[in-house]
Amino acid sequence: MKILLPDHKRWVHDSPMEVRWGDMDCLGHVNNTVYFRYMESARVEWLRSTRETPHDGNQGPVVVNCFCNYLRQIEYPAQLVVKMSVSDPARTAFETWYEIEKVGEPGVVYANGGATVIWVDFDRQKAVDLPAWMRAMLDG
């Protein structure tokens, strides 16, 4: 079963990752919660690719919704690539999309998912406009 993601997304980053022994659960495959960690790591790596930190002092990204579709089991050992895309930039938010593949198996998607990210003023606990540098990254 292949679950399709929006066609209007734009690829922005590939993040190589290694499955660690501790990523597995008692059934011998990667635990479902770890897939979210893989997606988070790709997102932070992308954000840090042009900046030292993924935030501006007291403002930064906050995930408000996320999901994952588990399509195939992943076991240790494995080398992965998390392919990240973005879409739908708005005034304060944008969408992120992920496809997880094994290195050496291009096009075979083991999981896919997404997250809605909003830009927040941490002191005020309120969404604010995306900063210009983030808008430029989203617009490509």
Rank of each mutant, 00 (worst) to 15 (best):
M84Q: 15
P54C: 04
R91A: 12
G104K: 08
D56G: 10
G57H: 03
C68V: 06
L71H: 01
V103F: 03
I74E: 06
I74P: 05
C66Q: 10
K102Q: 15
V64W: 06
S87Y: 03
T53G: 08
H29Q: 01
F36G: 12
E75K: 00
F67K: 05
P54E: 12
R72Q: 14
A93V: 01
Q59I: 07
Y38P: 07
V62P: 06
A42P: 13
S85Y: 12
F67D: 15
V86H: 06
W46T: 10
H29G: 02
S41C: 00
L27Q: 14
N31I: 08
Q73C: 09
V30P: 04
F94W: 12
M39Q: 05
L80S: 07
T53V: 15
E95D: 15
G28E: 05
Y70C: 06
S85V: 11
Y38S: 00
N32G: 00
S85R: 10
G28P: 12
E52C: 10
P54W: 10
S87T: 07
Y76I: 11
E99H: 14
Y98D: 04
Y38Q: 07
N58C: 10
R43D: 08
F36L: 15
I74K: 05
D56Y: 02
T50E: 14
V64P: 03
T53C: 05
V62G: 10
R72P: 02
S49F: 09
H55M: 11
N69M: 01
C26W: 02
S49T: 12
I74M: 12
L80Y: 07
D25H: 00
V81E: 02
I100D: 00
A90G: 15
L27C: 02
M84W: 00
V30R: 11
G57W: 04
A90M: 13
G28F: 01
G57M: 09
P61D: 05
N58V: 07
Y70R: 00
N65D: 15
W46Q: 09
E75N: 06
L47N: 05
E75Y: 06
D56M: 08
Y98R: 10
V44D: 04
R51T: 11
W97G: 00
N32I: 00
R51S: 13
A90R: 15
V82K: 03
Q59A: 13
G60D: 02
N58H: 12
R91C: 06
M39K: 02
P54M: 11
P89M: 04
G28W: 05
N31Y: 08
S49G: 12
Y35L: 09
E52A: 14
T50R: 10
N31Q: 07
D25C: 03
N32D: 08
G57Y: 04
F36P: 01
T50G: 11
T33I: 13
V103L: 05
R91I: 09
H55G: 07
Y35W: 14
P54A: 11
E95K: 13
V86S: 08
